[in-house]
Nucleic acid binder design. Structure first.
Lengths: 239, 239
DNA sequence: CCCTGAAAGTTAACGGTGTTAGCAAATCTC
DNA sequence: GAGATTTGCTAACACCGTTAACTTTCAGGG
């Protein structure tokens, strides 16, 4: 029988372990923010926590795993921030909700550029995110906030589907469809979703990665223009 | 007086040095492509070249400098590829030229994702590219290929300037204007250029960085759609 | 022709990194 | 309290960037 000091979350031992796991990630993130990705080192994290590097192997099997866990955590944090932004507008107006969510994505990215870089500049920058890896699910938890909202928008608004849908896409789009709860979404509509996501990602990335610095100090108006285009494509014009 | 074995490029000694500099970069790039950015290491490069790591310091002052030189070289290669693509269409049709150049940018990025990542996912991923650093000029040599073509397009075509140009942009845009040869370009037109660059970068980056993999196997039609939008905004519709 | 001096490359070493093996202590379970 | 499990340690290995000091190579001037 479990000891009396247990909580609902299953065992005191288990609880302090969870706290240690969290502190490792917290420390790693602080290093990431303060000194850049190359400073997120097992020894540095251990040093900051007052322990030695090999001790961390009781919590993460490798440096790679630790970074992956941090990535997952950040995806969740971003998804939570987006969900919170969504709630700032009534559910009856998914257009306004989506606008708020897109703005929050940009806001979060600008406020946390290092974290954004870890999440969204990765697959090519270093180790490959395997299809079934631990970073896959969290990335979906993030993306679903956007996709679900687009589905709502599809119900409320009037998306005009493209007339020329490349047949090679159908296979992959059907896999995406399975990830969406509720009634099935037409593939043409999914195409619009994907193209809007591409546009949104591009608008945020080009700014956060510094590829507008050569010309603009404040790209916000440009982003707002892009956002307007996106919402129009989704049948949710300015009001 | 110089020895008889000299070539036009100034001294045999100097020539073998240039070749060594080039081989270092070549080797570093091969490591980048074959094993990822974290494998581009002084010791690995030296090992592949049959020498020892400290020897490389006769050529580059630090690992950072070497990476920066590699970055510059890749910017130049990309710029050359774009220029070559431009020449595939007659100068009288800057619209077709620009389309070819944009396609070549995507082609190059997909064929060299690691290199693209080094060039275009950097400022946030690690060390900061200082404003006056050596990577600044090469990045301009690349960007100018696009900007010059847009200027040509402005002369030939009909770009409709936006009616609401944020006043805070004027200062920075004027700095961009100085980098362009020939007659001065109106700031409103420059705004269109910048917004098209943002769109182009986003379209390529979202694909190369793998953020369409969840949905699409072949994003080319999506890119072509984006490209059509870009050319339309520049007053160079499909034909 | 040899002599000089710069350039190129070497080895040895320092502190940093991820990672493994083996051990000691603390803590939970019975 | 005894046994088992978890947690953290130290020592060590291979790799990294970087520096210092040394040797070798070799172009060029007297």
């Amino acid at each position: 029988m479990p000891s009396a000091s247990e909580t609902a979350a299953g065992g005191r031992r288990h609880r302090v372990r969870e706290e240690a796991l969290a502190e490792i990630l917290r420390t790693g993130r602080r290093l990431l923010v303060d000194e850049g990705p190359s400073a997120v080192t097992l020894r540095a994290i251990a040093r900051e926590m007052g322990m030695t590097a090999p001790g961390l192997y009781r919590y993460y099997a490798s440096h790679r795993d630790l970074i992956q866990a941090l990535t997952s955590h950040l995806y969740d944090e971003l998804a939570a921030a987006l969900a919170e932004a969504r709630e700032r507008r009534p559910a009856e107006e998914p257009g306004r909700q989506l606008r708020e969510v897109c703005r929050e994505l940009r806001r979060w990215a600008l406020a946390h550029p290092r974290e954004f870089g870890l999440l969204f500049a990765k697959p090519v920058t270093d180790a490959d995110t395997a299809p079934g890896s631990a970073a896959h699910d969290p990335s979906w938890r993030f993306g679903t906030v956007l996709l679900d909202l687009m589905v709502q928008l599809w119900h409320h608004g009037s998306i005009e589907p493209p007339n020329d849908l490349d047949p090679s896409w159908i296979v992959q789009l059907e896999e995406v469809r399975e990830h969406l709860a509720g009634e099935p979404v037409p593939l043409e509509i999914l195409y619009v979703f994907v193209s809007c996501w591409a546009r949104l990602y591009g608008a945020v990335a080009v700014e956060v990665f510094g590829h507008l610095d050569f010309a603009l100090t404040d790209p916000e108006p440009l982003f707002e223009h892009t956002l307007h285009d996106i919402l129009t494509a989704l049948g949710a014009s300015d009001r």
